[in-house]
Design a binder for these strands. Structure first.
Lengths: 252, 252
DNA sequence: GCTTGACCCTCACGCAACGTCAGGCTGCAG
DNA sequence: CTGCAGCCTGACGTTGCGTGAGGGTCAAGC
């Protein structure tokens, strides 16, 4: 081995604050790294002062680099202690994690922007309404699995914004008709109610795409959150029961 | 006032776990929200059990919605207590914060992907080299302000990747030439060295864009990190001094 | 009346990565 | 000798809860 490979003991040593300045870290951070077993000083002075050599400075720069890439301290320790092999894997893992995080945040940002715009344009919109609409956008995630959300979103994109607007405009109409029929005590089997039931079922199918799992989740959501659903859609449990009965009587 | 606006005391009350199930939160979370002053139970049973009414359930759903949008608990409290006005502002602020966070993360992701790819393709690249290249990508942020980074990036995009590759290929050539001249003890004022100095200065200007502030930051970076700069660029302080002297002698 | 779960309560520590005192040495300049 | 900068070791604060520990409560079955 080359002689300079062995640790020279006449190397220049630096105090914490010197090292801190050179790396842009704080003294406290160096203490912390030592406590976590990431970087031990090369030596201590008689008074107990931490003294760092060039090796430590280099290691510290590596630590700072990995931290800047978002690695946790335990991960960094593992990478630096185990040397080469784990580093590439760790990088790949970190890329995956970060990608997922970016997707999540972008998703969140989109929802947030929608609500914020609604709040900004809606001319003194009251907090109650606003909060309800926020809730509506988050409540779905509780009842639909990520895969279901995915497929729902895809169906929406496939149908196009034009079609979606049409559907959204059709719903209040159908709901109002159904409620009127119910309030008048009409028989769910009556031809008029059956026609409404057919439209209703069609609109639901646009949403579920015929997926039985989505249908079940949708039912659960309505059953668990009657109040929210009523304020958001105008459908309460009683109306829902009436509509379901009418749909069940459809002769298909 | 309508009679139902006053708090009815015959309303159905629910226990913690019931509320937790309905909202998808945990019992602990409800305790926490109470401790933070976000949501107090409507009442307590004789045994001290928390009891929540419909009002509390509604408020809790609002809390959950705002949390899903990334608000902190103190912010949520402020929004819900102050009612309408702060909500729209808070949404706008949150949008800004989130946007900034997304940008940061994407930036990080790009750097990380570069390094990861280098690690994956580089056939048993050693950790040392890899860590050094990571460092190079992070060290700049310590010496250049965000605005400077911005303008540097813009210049890079303006010049195009083609031009960048040319510059990156030219550097080693110029550095090697300058080092050879220095090692041979040539006078910095010699025509040959002056030609190298002119090319050197041109390459530096491609980077600084003539910005004196960037130039200063660059100098500081080289002065503070001689080792890193040497391994990354092949320029050590001695060579740097020689090159600067030659550039200073250029007759423009 | 007793046991058994299922629920409920109140502390209180843990985590990630440090920031920020507090109280007390050390080292160097004037 | 004094002063001040720099160093040390605790130890608590931050954010949003998770996770016990240790101990009452409630409804049901025996």
């Amino acid at each position: 081995m080359a002689p300079h490979a062995t640790r020279s003991r006449t190397m220049t040593l630096h105090t914490v604050s010197q090292i801190a300045r050179r790396t842009g870290l704080t003294v406290r951070t160096l203490h912390h790294y030592e406590a976590k077993g990431l970087l031990r000083p090369a030596a201590r002075s008689d008074a107990g002062y931490r003294l760092y050599g060039e090796r430590e400075l280099l290691r510290l720069q590596h630590i700072a680099s990995l931290r800047a890439l978002g690695f946790s301290l335990p991960e960094i320790r593992a990478c630096l202690d185990a040397d080469t092999p784990s580093l590439a894997e760790a990088l790949a893992r970190q890329v995956d994690r970060l990608r997922a995080a970016v997707v999540r945040q972008q998703d969140l940002l989109i929802r947030l922007e929608r609500v914020a715009q609604q709040a900004a344009t809606g001319e003194t919109i009251d907090a109650e309404t606003l909060l309800n609409s926020i809730e509506a956008s988050t409540i779905m995630e509780k009842y639909f699995s990520p895969e279901q959300m995915q497929s729902i979103k895809q169906r929406g994109e496939a149908l196009g914004p034009q079609h979606i607007r049409e559907v959204e405009q059709a719903w209040p109409d159908v709901i109002a008709g159904m409620r009127a029929a119910m309030d008048l005590g009409k028989d769910p089997a009556a031809a008029e109610v059956q026609a409404l039931a057919r439209r209703w079922r069609g609109l639901v199918r646009e949403f579920t795409g015929g997926d039985a799992g989505v249908q079940r989740s949708l039912n659960t959501m309505f059953k668990d959150n009657p109040d929210t659903m009523r304020t958001q859609t105008g459908i309460d449990p009683v109306l829902m029961a009436y509509a379901c009965k009418a749909i069940g009587l459809l002769a298909d």
